[in-house]
């Protein structure tokens, strides 16, 4: 799974506005089991190349492993369009419209079915092999663009190792705590370590 770059990384030049709300967001995501949503917002905020592809893979992983049909995403649409383009062109006579629509639906459905079946098999394999293990297994989730290995652990049992989305949310929390508590820590570091007041220079954003 590609490593996400941090968005909220403190660099000492950002202001502190909004940090509490992002913070609350991270906490609430962990409370409401919505860490994926948090991930989405962070990823989309990043607006980097590959962002949509990354989000798409996360989405496919989640929906497939929940036993649902994945939403028609970027790759599905492209694949379906390609399949339709490859079909012999229908004559423009009466009924061509609905036939075309029907064939599109059929192609789309078949692509979806492959993914769902593949996903279920993978999910099952994962569930079985998870028994008695503590470490998560890499789960290969197939999307229409080909096999994309995604590091994940989606068992029903609670495992000591965390799910990727949790890690992201917790990292966000750690980042926020660093920002929130650095100054208070520096009050003590500046009186109890040999560098004098310099520990305040470590504080990402000094507040009044």
């Amino acid at each position: 799974m590609p490593e996400l770059k941090s968005v909220g990384r403190s660099n000492g030049t950002q202001d502190g506005v909004g940090s509490r709300s992002v913070d609350a967001e991270a906490l609430s995501a962990l409370m409401d089991d919505e860490a994926q949503e948090l991930e989405l917002r962070r990823v989309l905020r990043q607006n980097a190349p590959g962002t949509r592809e990354h989000w798409y893979r996360l989405q496919v992983t989640r929906t497939v492993l929940q036993g649902e049909t994945p939403l028609a995403g970027v790759d599905f649409a492209a694949r379906v369009r390609a399949a339709i383009d490859a079909e012999p062109t229908q004559s423009a006579g009466s009924g061509g419209g609905w036939k075309h629509a029907l064939s599109s639906f059929a192609v789309a459905a078949s692509v979806t079915a492959v993914v769902v079946l593949g996903g279920q098999q993978l999910a099952q394999t994962t569930a079985q092999s998870d028994a008695g293990r503590v470490a998560p297994l890499p789960v290969g989730v197939v999307n229409t663009a080909g096999a994309v290995p995604v590091q994940a652990s989606f068992g029903t049992r609670s495992l000591p190792t965390l799910q990727p989305a949790d890690r992201t949310a917790y990292r966000e929390l750690a980042r926020q705590r660093l920002r929130r508590y650095s100054q208070e820590h520096a009050e003590h570091a500046s009186l109890n370590t040999p560098q004098g007041m310099l520990p305040f220079a470590r504080v990402p954003v000094i507040e009044r």
Binding site: A35, S158, D166, Y170, A174, Y181, H188, P194, R202
Partner: peptide, 26 residues
């Protein structure tokens, strides 16, 4: 004497998924 650290404990209103997160700067 040379290093220092602080521990913070926040009571939460609701349970959250157990887990850990890390941020290192220098």
């Amino acid at each position: 004497g040379l290093a220092s650290f602080s521990v913070f404990l926040e009571p939460l209103a609701r349970a959250i998924k157990p887990g850990e997160g890390l941020e290192r700067q220098g």
